[in-house]
Design a protein around this nucleic acid. Structure first.
Length: 567
RNA sequence: GCGCUGUUAGCUCAAUUGGAUAGAGCAUCUGACUUCGGAUCAGAAGGUUAGAGGUUCAAGUCCUCUACGGCGCACCA
């Protein structure tokens, strides 16, 4: 319990006793303006509104009857019914000493942990990953880590697009070319070209379209030769994905393609028909719900083929039935909102017991403000983006660190480039569309990963110079405003992580870490550590610097950004 | 047409979910150091939160309307 939480507990016990009908809060939040205090509550205003009482009177009672924890100043009443609180430097120092001993840095696990499936990334077989995949991959990865840190059991799933109609066109062109060997180095590029060829041919020639359909049907009914081709496509694609995920350091617990559910699809549709959830309309099988949309949700085409939604229903059921998920979180582009409303609505009618969430993010747009699409335009390949990130980082490193050469230069460039990319992608709120520019995604100045990493490096450098291996535990003494402000800020870490997890919005954590780094830089200017005026102060500042470093590393780690000891 | 979503400083974004005087970065200008790592810090300037009404002690945030973007609306995923 650190600072806010201590005060929260006191205030809650008072509000529970005096105003039980208002719920349990939380009531205490940090002051936006430090002149008012460190923390504030506007509880009296809410209580007055609900009970018809007088806000200032309630504020007075709260201030007088509910004393803050020891070491806090007397609460002050302000405005129409705010109560402001201020912790003394001693109380702050004690809080930091406790936080320093807490291996979780103030992150409190859920009281009721859940098994949560996070479904993210989901690239398509036989296609290169491109910028359109980056947000789902990074957001899903971070959410999985956030939810796990909050005490849940998390299952990360990559739901690969390995069974769509694109395989008919791909097989058509591939087989027409005599099923050539796919080279190790650029198998994906070859596959993309075959697909493009098959697509063009079948779009311009109805007979070819029929052939493509036949290829797909043959594959789906288990023709051995086509099955074998398809397996090669999958294997080669997996190699490509593995390399990207290795560089991004993203992992999955399960990689299950859509093909996994192929056999279950007829049963799903029959089930829904039998339960009168679905009906036949114009030869197709559909689910209706006018409150969602006039148009129905299609789960079987009139030619008998199944769709995206059918596969998703089967996958959803499997996650509940086989993985015992309480909650499934789908991380995709916002354009799929309607699809997921239909999916969740149908799943509930189907009596699938669970909580389903669509965590969506804005579309990545090209410079023309139109979505970057994979078929028209030129989507930037993820490999190229990662390489460019590394190159730009290397240029800056060569300026700042001319002593670096060889492998250590390569390694640092890779780390810094990808760190910047990851941070830039996660820093804006997730429901904004964003226009893709190299400059924005690969910035190294201002609110960026290098700024935060530099603060971390400074914390490590101080400890190194002091001859200390691991961050120490010393009593905390706070003299300067900069160190007190930093200390109070560090104690908000747990609250911010909880907020980011609950909201499924990691950008809160980005903002917090940026502020933390800024406060540390200010502390660094204002408070000499190694040359501190007294040994007690030196020890205190060493401890504070160590703890700041630990929290920066922990927070960046949640965002999937590794730290480095020097840069 | 219906639905979803957005519009905040020149640009890119925040704002603890209805709280007090809307904050950062970039760009511009001015300062600080013979550095516990300058990939830093301090300061200046920059705003009718798209517009108009409404709800209330309090609105960038909620409601209504308008304008302008983006997206989605049966056999693609």
């Amino acid at each position: 319990m650190y600072l806010r939480a201590e005060l929260e507990a006191n205030v809650q016990s008072w509000t529970q006793k005096n105003f039980p009908s208002l719920g349990i809060g939380p009531w205490i939040r940090p002051c936006a303006d430090p002149r008012h205090g460190h923390f504030q509550t506007h509880f009296p205003l809410l209580a007055a509104k609900q009970t018809g009482g007088n806000a200032r009177e309630i504020a007075t009672r709260l201030a007088e009857e509910c004393s803050p924890p020891p070491g806090w100043e007397k609460p002050q009443i302000a405005g129409g019914g705010f109560v402001n609180y201020r912790a003394t430097p001693n109380a702050v120092a004690r809080g930091i000493e406790n936080l320093r001993k807490d291996k979780a840095f103030g992150i409190v696990p859920n009281e009721r942990p859940e098994t949560i499936v996070v479904d993210f990334s989901s690239p398509n077989i036989a296609k290169a990953m491109h910028v359109g995949h980056i947000r789902s991959t990074l957001l899903g990865d971070t959410l999985a880590r956030l939810l796990r840190r909050c005490g849940n059991q998390v299952i990360r799933i990559n739901h690969l697009g390995d069974w769509g109609t694109q395989f008919g066109k791909l097989l058509l062109a591939y087989r027409a070319a005599g099923r050539p060997e796919l080279s190790n180095s650029n198998a994906i590029q070859q596959l993309e070209e075959f697909y493009k060829l098959g697509h063009q041919e079948s779009e311009s020639d109805p007979a070819k379209m029929e052939l493509a359909r036949a290829e797909l049907a043959a594959l789906q009914s288990g023709d051995p030769e086509r099955k074998k081709d398809w397996e090669v496509f999958c294997e080669r694609s997996a190699e490509h994905f593995r390399e990207i995920y290795r560089r991004l350091n993203v992992t999955f617990d399960l990689e299950k393609g859509e093909s996994t559910y192929h056999e279950e699809l007829p049963g799903v549709v029959e089930d829904l028909l039998r339960l009168k959830i679905a009906e036949i309309s114009q030869g197709a099988v559909v689910v209706r719900n006018p409150s969602i949309s006039e148009e129905p949700f299609l789960i079987r085409k009139s030619d008998g083929a199944f769709l995206y939604g059918t596969t998703d229903l089967a996958a959803l059921r499997s996650r509940i039935r086989d993985l015992h998920a309480h909650r499934i979180i789908y991380v995709t582009d916002g354009r799929q909102q309607l699809h997921f409303r239909w999916l969740f609505d149908t799943a509930h009618k189907w009596n699938q017991q669970g909580v389903f969430e669509h965590v969506w993010f804005g579309t990545i747009l090209g410079s023309d403000r139109k979505p970057l699409k994979s078929r028209d335009g030129t989507p930037i390949k993820l490999v190229d983006l990662l390489d460019e990130a590394k190159d730009r980082a290397k240029k800056i490193l060569l300026e700042k660190r001319p002593d670096l050469t060889g492998q250590s230069l390569e390694d640092k460039a890779e780390l810094l480039g990808i760190a910047s990319l990851k941070y830039a992608d996660q820093m804006p709120g997730r429901n904004l569309d964003y226009v893709f520019t190299w400059e924005k995604l690969l910035a190294f100045d201002g609110n960026t990963a290098p700024y935060i990493l530099n603060a971390y490096v400074r914390t490590r450098s101080i400890l190194r110079k002091a001859g200390i291996e691991t961050p120490p535990y010393h009593p905390i003494v706070l003299k300067e405003p900069a160190e007190e402000e930093l200390s109070r800020h560090l104690m908000q870490y747990g609250d911010i992580v909880a907020l980011a997890a609950q909201d499924r919005r990691p950008h809160h954590l980005c903002g917090y870490l940026f502020e933390t780094a800024g406060m540390f830089h200010r502390f660094f200017e204002a408070c000499p550590v190694l040359q501190a005026p007294t040994p007690d102060l030196r020890n205190s500042r060493l401890t504070l610097a160590g703890l700041t470093g630990d929290i920066l590393r922990d927070g960046l780690g949640i965002l999937g950004i590794p730290t480095l000891e020097e840069m």
